[in-house]
Design a protein around this nucleic acid. Structure first.
Lengths: 217, 217
DNA sequence: TTAAGATAGTGAACACTGTTCAACGCAGGC
DNA sequence: GCCTGCGTTGAACAGTGTTCACTATCTTAA
């Protein structure tokens, strides 16, 4: 009687195998150099077979981006601020954004897929659908709110604005590094730290603005 | 006797025609959708002919990136701070970086080619060779030095560090916008302004760091 | 047990891509 | 008038994402 179940299981296993093969290939060779044919060869299927599991190449990489967010979220969870619950919120915030930068170093392909790639339009459009993306933002904005409560930021500061500006600034550093736009000999790690500190100091000191974003990452 | 000269002129004209066709096509349809065959069709040559003018597709777009830097530099020159030489340096700096953001809006394809594209590796490697890139940085770091002299930034601040952090932060905003990573309804213009002000305020207030980059853009 | 049906997987093709190369035609110089 | 050399070409190569008619196998009902 478990025929349907077994078939379903087999289908799922093959889908997983496709994703695994795609991941290994694109971590090793980059998105541009992963072709359906290479994935097919790796799992010993014909290229056409893949299209009965995923509607297009983009959808395979949409699945991988989801995996990337899961990975980043796991890293963020494991970083220092969560180990010491009594650590100063401001240090947690700094660490969390440094972790995003570090993630872009340890998983450059995932980072590119998640934050930079324009060749997978579906990621751009659907990218808010990942639940843990919202969860991760929530956790960080909570920390920022906590810091505001402690007087680290001026009263009335917008946690979302602080989060957003930190995010785009760090993503800027990541991009400049990943796109080989660093000056010869320039130290990206220091740049990341200084950038985060500059933005944090800016918001801590306070300046007037009416930026109240919502649902950003 | 002017035969060689005429031939040379004709070759140059064809090379220009290739660049023009490439530019029109890629401004209209984006880098990904411009093929050698489309360029060839537009200038009424065979695809193979193009390869006697440019070693590869990448080299055509390397030429276009150079054009992009020229354009951006022209915009920066034309922006408010140059119109009023007595304007507060801090406003000039803000305007200049806002201009970079605006350029990414008015010329998204050029911006992507200049700052984001990884599919044209030669741009990454040779990208410091553009003379006016250094010139533009020089002009801006001078303005920052001027501001330091006026006491807008703490004594001993590094103009290069301020320049660099402003640059990567603005590039972050540009990237998030161009890569469709904005939240629905989020206002990128405001984000750009707030980001620049946050970084500026951070550096004006001052925080300890030993970042002394050189030759960055 | 056999016939019918569902379906996963295939090979071949389509319409593209960047790039290469032998061959051809034509202008320039002797 | 012939020869050389250069610009240009058509055809091909090896690759891409994707589609589709077909087969072979496995499942289910009679």
């Amino acid at each position: 009687m478990g025929v349907k179940e077994r078939q379903e299981r087999e289908r799922e296993a093959t889908a997983r195998a496709i994703l695994d093969a795609a991941r290994e290939l694109f971590v090793a060779e980059g998105y541009q150099n992963v072709s359906i044919r290479k994935i097919a060869e790796r799992i010993e299927y014909s290229p056409a077979a893949i299209y009965s599991y995923f509607p297009s190449k983009d959808d395979i990489f949409l699945g991988l981006a989801e995996e990337g967010f899961r990975l980043l979220f796991a890293s963020a969870h494991a970083c220092a601020c969560n180990a010491e619950p009594d650590a100063p919120p401001i240090d947690c915030i700094r660490d969390a954004f440094l972790e995003i930068y570090n993630f872009s170093k340890s998983h450059p392909e995932y980072h590119a897929l998640m934050f930079m790639d324009r060749s997978v339009p579906k990621i751009s459009h659907d990218w808010q659908r990942f639940g843990f993306v919202r969860e991760m933002r929530g956790q960080l904005t909570n920390r920022i709110q906590q810091a505001i409560g402690r007087g680290d930021f001026p009263v009335g500061s917008s946690p979302e604005a602080i989060f957003r500006v930190l995010m785009v600034s760090v993503l800027g550093v990541c991009m400049v590094r990943l796109c080989d736009r660093m000056a010869p000999g320039e130290d990206a790690d220091t740049l990341a730290r200084v950038t985060i500190d500059a933005v944090l100091t800016g918001f801590r000191t306070g300046f007037t603005h009416s930026y109240r974003p919502e649902n950003c990452l």
